[in-house]
Structure formats: C-alpha cells, structure tokens
Design a protein around this nucleic acid. Structure first.
Lengths: 367, 367
DNA sequence: TCTCCGATAGAAAGCGCTTGCTACGGCTGT
DNA sequence: ACAGCCGTAGCAAGCGCTTTCTATCGGAGA
C-alpha cells in the first residue's frame, strides 16, 4: 500500500542501498543512476519513512524549541526566528541537507512539562534542543534539568539556551545566549532616577524565575547606587522573593492582568510613587490601564516603563519607554547554533546587550 | 550504552514483549510483573526509542500544528490552546495515553513551506495535523494541498482546520472550524455606517488569502446594503484583488508597517475618509499611528477599527473597536478534534461566530 | 480424576531504512 | 599483458520495538 524504498529500488532497477544513498547524498552515485532513482521517486510519489530512517541512522531530523508561553510574542518572535534557521527549505538547498523539522513546544512555564517535553524529545532522538526564556530556580528542578540535559547531550543532542542563563553546573555541554536583564533593568531605573523620580514602584514577574530576579536586581542596583533603597530587612540578592519589607515591589505573572492589579495595589500602598516599572511590556500595558483608571495621566502624573520592546510597545499611547531585547536576532542565532551552522561563543556563553529605549511614557515627575 | 527494552526485560527477568506491553498498557499483565518491570524502567532510567516504536507500530505520537506566523499572537494563541489539549501531561493521565508531542510549524505564510512541513509530518507518520489561519487561494496550491492532505488522511493522519475554510473539494476527510470572517466584517462596517460614516477606507491583507477576501467581502456587503459602494467596475466577489477602481481599499501584509503605510496612502487618495477599517488589530495599530502622525485625533477626526481582538487591543488608546474571535476556544477545540477526544461537527464543518466589540476608537464623524 | 479454558508470558518475525564490507569493471602503471 | 586501483553498486546485518501466534499453568466443570 504505502511505497517503500524497495519499491523505488525495483522501479529504478537498483538496490535499496543505492536509493538510500541517492536520497542522503553522501556517497558517490553515478549521475545516470541518480537520475533514474530520482525519477522513480517522483513517479511513485515516494516519501521516506522517518521513523525507520531515524531508527537505522540513530538520529532524527527533529529540533525542539521549548518556550514558556507561545501566545506571548516574546517567545513567538524568538521561536519563529529560530525556526527560520532550521526548518524546511527556503534556507537554500532544495533537496537534501538542512531539512530539519523545527518543533515548538509550549511548556506553559511549568517545570514538569518542561521535563516531559525534554523526555519526549529524547525519545525522538532529537538532533538539537533550544530552550528559551527564563528558568525556574528551584534546586530540585535545576538538578533534574541538568541531569536530563546531560543525558540528551551524550545521546548527541545539541543543546542551546536562548535568553536563559546557563545552568549553575552547566558544563561546556551547551551554548548559552543570555540577555543582559540585570544591566537593562539597572539602566532603566537609572533613567527614571535621572529624571528626578525618587519613589518608584516595581511590578515584578513570578519570584521563582531567573528573568524576574535579574531584572529586579538591576532595578535595586540602581536604587542602591542612588541611595534610594527603601526595603528594610536584609534580603539582598538571595531569594528575590520580595521580602515583605519591600513595599514598592509586587510580584505576579507576566501578563496584563497582573500589571493592572499590581499597579492598583502599589498605588494603594504608596500613593506617592511617581513612576512604575513593569516586569515586561505586557505587564506595563496593564499598569497603564490601571493608572488611567485611577484618573491619572501618563507621564504627567506618573511615568510607566516596560521591558522587551515588543512590537506593540511603540504604538502604545504614549509610546512605552522600555528596554529593547534583540529577540529576533537572538532566536536566529540560537537556531544557527542548534544547526551547527555557527560556532559557539567563547566559553559557551554570550551575553546579549539590552538597549534602553526612551519614549513618551516617562518624564520628570511633577515639580 | 543506551538502555534498550531488552535491558529492562533482563533486569526485570521477563521478555521484551512483556515490557512493551507494560509500557503500552493494552494487554493483560499481572500486577506483580508490571510492578517489577516499572521498577526496572526506573532503575535503568529507560526512555523508549520513539523511532523504533513508531516504525514497529506504524504510527507516531507526533501532532503537527501549522501556523502562518508564530510571532503573531493570533496564531500563538490558537497554537498554544491546541497544545494544551495535546501535549505532555497535565491533561490528566500521568503515564500512558495522551502523551503526544504537539509540534508547531511556522510556515511564514509560504505555500511551499506549508507543503514541505506537511511532507515532513507525513514522513514522521504524524498522528494528526492542525492547519490554522487562512489559506492561499491559488488553484495550483489548493490542488497540491488537497492531494497532500488526502495522502496524509489515508495514511491515518487526522486532519483538522482551525480558522480556515474547508477545501473546495474537501471531502469528509477533515473537520473544519471556520471563523465567520465575512459576518464579522459586515457587522463592523455596519456599525461604522450606523454611526454616520460614508467614506470608509479599508486596509486589507494580502489579496490571495481567504481571510482577506472574506473580511473584505463582509465589508462590501455592508457598503452595498447601504448603497455606498464606490468602486465602479464589476469585480464583485471574484478575485477580491482590489480592482484599481476601488480607491478606498489598499492591500498589504498583516503587519503594523503595512497598516501605517496603507493608511497614509488612503489619506492621500481620499482625504475625506472619516473611518478606516483594518484587516486586523496589528494593522489597526499601524493605522492609528499614521492617523496621529498626520495630526488627526482618534476618534474625533477619524475612526479606526481592527479585527481579532488580540489582548493588546483593549489597551490601545483609545481602546480599539474590533471583532472578537474566540481564538483560544477554537484552538482548544481543534486540539481536541485532533486527539479524537471530541466528535467532529455535523457535516465536518462548524462556523465560529465573531462578536463585534465596540470601544473608543470609533465614533460618529464630525458633523 | 480428566478435560477444557482463561489468564499470562515468551518466541520470533518483521517494520523500512542505513551502512560496513564485498564485488565487479575498466584504467593506469610497468 | 598483468597487477592494482578507483569508482560504483549490491549484500546483508542489524537498529529497537510491536505483535501474532504459541506455550504454560492453575483451576473449574463433568
């Protein structure tokens, strides 16, 4: 019923081995033979059996891309960019070669699903895996991830981190592209401080994520440098769990609603804040809505800033001051690394710069 | 080196067949044996070899989700929703059963890539394929798609359309969930007309896409019903190619930039337009920017409307009047259909209603 | 007590492809 | 004219799993 290699071989009057070699193109085959085989493939409308091929060759052409939330353009942009360097044709060669299947796996931010997808990918003998976005910092999960990744790595799967810090014990088994979240966060808050803001609210992401912690650390660095720390207790770098002494920081998920509610909470706790920094642009949009619903104007009454510089941020009114992350470029580079088209950065890890984008949503506080 | 079924069997002192049966759980195995096997699996950290399994069983646990542009939340939301119904655990069962690998494939809107991905999926013997978003209307491509899908279908792959009209020759081999783009477009324009607008510009998507055509047709229906058609030549339903007689319609890609530029063009062509309808919300954002850059206010000087009701639309200033499509619900339903968890709608096709969302970006034209 | 049957477990035959090794011509070198 | 090679093609042995068919064991029914 279904056409197999043997059928093609028969029609082309060659052995199956020859057909296989024509299709994989890594063995000398006479031009005339090749042509005959190719015609047979066409005539029969033959499609290679992937599982059989992967089984025999002990590798597959699957590349997995793990994302926290595919409905969020932050991940969509990176994943799409990575896929341009991996998937199907369009990357030059028509037939053989780069025909990998890039697959995007949506973990929903759940550590368990992350692990499950990794197992599924391991099961498929994936050629590479790209992990995007921040990681969860629970030691148990980190250990499980390290173990899983080590296993994948020595099964020959290439591992690339994109916008994610390398694992603590991260041996040289991965290439990592990390965003400078800390630096970006610092510069953003410095900007606000230089504008004259002294009471700055912060709507943070979920406390257990590296991204949240790094951005928040940058914010605090800037505050500290300006002598503006307002949180009493020790805390410091450690958990980043927003010790309750820190009244100007509210944690929540990376979504609009959290931005809205956290901002209301912030305004209640400290009606004198003159600026609000959001964990990312989506959260910032929610913050803007809350500020407006309270009858205040942006930026005259209160400044608002975001992070990421997603496409819609420039269209907010007023346009959002934010920190630009080169998501597309990073994703594409991660894709290339996954394909082995590009050499890993020295030391296996590269930090990607974040650029401050000053726009209309921030201004000096009312005198 | 890598652990195989046989290793597990040896350790559990049973035959490979038994291990396989325990893992697949569709054959009676004594509880004590099962437990012994499971322990061995654990001890050895065994991971099934997917390709081998798929080869032997002639099916795989891959489900493909094709999208036009994963960086666009329109697709991200649907794909993510579908994946919740398909991927990994979290859907109840811990171990066996629904452990499918949902993979998202980004076609970039290119017909060739769409076909290539389908071939790749066919090669992997995918269990199901979900196609989202509008299709390209070229007859050649339609035919190629129909042929490919037919082949997939009789290889046992389940096919689901989501937000995509069924193929012309679409036999009962697919379940289709189609958005009521025409109806939504019609109601949106009716709303504008009822507000008093008479000169309405339209920034359409790429002419060759079904989505573009349907939305535009809805728009024209409304105009016609109100006696406002302004395009001279016949045209009508056919190509939808924006016959050049139609000066109030400009086509372009579904992105912000196109919205910006097309709006400028529209304003140049017809400075007296009082409203602009965009192909979708992203385009609408660009349109808003253009309107503002021309020194006009929304909605006082000109009304703007979008389509889709993406999450950021409510946060635009003023909030965008648009047509809400239940993307998440549709995606989830498509996922369920792909998994065979839900019965296909009668006739294989269901039309999903679009709801008009009237917000601040539209108002009566200045008297 | 003997036969028959249900419940389990094992043996073994592939699934369709890749690839190391062998085989076969025709050339080149001497 | 003969040995030795290079360039090609074929053989056959798996890759790790699923599944059909068969074997075995312990009762239940007669």
């Amino acid at each position: 019923m279904t056409v197999t290699l043997a059928d093609v071989a028969a029609r082309a009057r060659v052995s199956p081995a020859t057909v296989s070699r024509v299709l994989n193109g890594n063995y000398p085959v006479a031009a005339s033979t090749r042509e005959r085989v190719l015609r047979a493939v066409d005539d029969l409308d033959y499609v290679l059996n992937g599982p059989a091929s992967s089984l025999a060759a002990a590798t597959s052409d699957l590349v997995g891309i793990l994302v926290n939330d595919i409905a969020d353009p932050f991940f969509g942009i990176m994943a799409g960019a990575a896929q341009t360097q991996i998937g199907g044709p369009g990357d030059g060669s028509g037939r053989a070669g780069g025909e990998k299947l890039a697959v995007i796996c949506n973990t929903g931010g759940s550590p368990e699903r992350e692990l499950t997808y990794l197992t599924l990918l391991q099961r498929q003998r994936a050629a590479a895996v790209v992990l995007t976005g921040g990681a969860v910092e629970s030691p148990a999960h980190q250990a499980a991830m390290a173990a899983k990744l080590a296993k994948l790595a020595d099964a020959g799967t290439r591992i690339v981190f994109c916008g994610r810090p390398p694992l603590p014990e991260g041996d040289a088994l991965v290439a990592a592209l990390a965003f400078d979240n800390r630096g970006g966060g610092r510069r953003l808050t410095e900007h606000l401080i230089s504008l004259g803001h002294r009471r700055i609210g912060y709507v943070a992401g979920p406390p257990e994520r590296t991204t949240t912690r790094h951005r928040l650390e940058g914010h605090r660095e800037a505050l500290r440098a300006a002598g503006l720390e307002d949180f009493p207790a020790g805390g410091g770098t450690a958990g980043g769990a927003g010790a309750d002494g820190d009244r100007l920081v509210v944690h929540g998920p990376y979504d609009r609603r959290s931005g809205y509610e956290a901002t209301l909470e912030l305004l209640r706790r400290a009606p004198d804040v003159t600026a609000i920094v959001a964990a990312n642009d989506t959260v910032a949009l929610g913050a803007c809505a809350a500020v407006r619903d309270q009858g205040m104007r942006i930026p005259q009454d209160i400044s608002v800033a975001g992070f990421d510089d997603l496409p819609f941020s420039v269209d907010a009114v007023p346009a959002l001051t934010t920190v630009r992350l080169p998501l597309f470029e990073a994703g594409a580079r991660a894709g290339r690394l996954a394909m082995g088209k590009e050499n890993p950065p020295p030391g296996g890890i590269a930090t990607i710069a974040a650029e401050l984008m000053i726009r209309g949503s921030t201004a000096a506080p009312r005198g």
